[in-house]
């Protein structure tokens, strides 16, 4: 069937074009990180640097504490993921496996929070973080110091629970047969033990999905870390640090260093995340389509 073959060719052409568009910015970034300043502003553009400037990377690492940025991102995204996993599993368990008055209201309420734009909390939460009693030089009324504002907790706590995580865990746990739980109860297991020893091991796939999805999205989060790091530069996460590259190195003079910094900031993580594609995709797929 020639028509069919033609169609196949057209679709291949479209896919290849789109694919090239997808990969080109990455390729350009990689090539440009190895260019000299002159090669970057050359007209017509230089595609591949004559002599790769590996020194660009050394120069960036010498000027910008990328390692500290990585560490901060790891602490923040890791802390949030851990907390989201625990709270989501507990709440998901309660909502999936217990029958009590108000359950549906709570569930719907949690789902509804997904519709709130985050800016509506930002200002009060920022102020609350400063006024946490007995932290950061504060007295028991929360006055006198800076509270949690200059600790990683200020970046972790406001995201410690995820409505999406609760939703996903509940959906997954609905699929665990009640008979398993009842059998355990007959054997005299406490509810806590059932949760820890039976439910959690069975929900490992869902936990992996929630954990990885949360980690990636928090790793890439900019807004809140930007607000916090403005007054606490030592908490600068990778996203904020990458944004600051443009300020640390004047984009008009040191673009080669900015691009080298961007390369160091995203390529390792992008490849790591790409290897976790399976879990991530499962996460987005489970959200809306299958219920």
């Amino acid at each position: 069937m020639p028509a069919r073959r033609a169609k196949r060719t057209i679709s291949t052409v479209i896919l290849v074009l789109c694919g090239v568009t997808m990969i080109l910015p990455f390729a350009w970034l990689l090539a440009s990180a190895l260019k000299t300043r002159a090669e970057l502003v050359a007209v017509p553009p230089v595609w591949i640097p004559k002599a790769p400037q590996w020194g660009n990377f050394v120069a960036v690492i010498g000027e910008v504490p990328l390692f500290a940025y990585y560490l901060n991102s790891l602490i923040v995204a890791g802390g949030i993921s851990f907390s989201v996993l625990m709270t989501s599993a507990m709440a998901g368990f309660a909502l999936a496996k217990y029958d009590f008055r108000g359950r549906d209201v709570v569930f719907k309420g949690i789902l509804a929070t997904m519709m709130l734009p985050s800016f509506i909390f930002i200002i009060p939460v920022y102020y609350m973080m400063r006024r946490v009693p007995l932290a950061g030089g504060n007295d028991w009324l929360g006055l006198g110091g800076y509270g949690l504002l200059h600790s990683h907790l200020s970046m972790i706590l406001p995201f410690a629970v995820s409505a999406w995580g609760v939703f996903l865990m509940r959906q997954f746990m609905l699929g665990i047969p009640d008979s398993l739980l009842d059998a355990a109860r007959i054997d005299g297991a406490s509810e806590g033990r059932i949760f820890w020893n039976i439910i959690l091991p069975l929900t490992k796939p869902a936990l992996a999905t929630v954990g990885i999805f949360t980690f990636i999205s928090q790793w890439n989060n900019l807004f809140w870390p930007l607000v916090i790091a403005t007054s606490a530069p030592e908490l600068t996460t990778l996203t904020v640090g990458l944004k600051m590259l443009a300020i640390a190195f004047d984009p008009n003079r040191n673009s080669h260093l900015i691009l080298a910094g961007l390369t160091l900031g995203i390529l390792p993580v992008t490849f790591l995340f790409a290897s976790l594609q399976r879990y991530y995709v499962k996460g987005i797929a489970m959200t809306g389509i299958k219920d």
Binding site: W219, L245, T270, A274
Partner: peptide
């Protein structure tokens, strides 16, 4: 999938 997991700030700067 690659662009979707890359930090948006970095994408924007590139």
């Amino acid at each position: 999938f690659l662009p979707t997991i890359t930090t948006p700030v970095a994408i924007g700067m590139v």
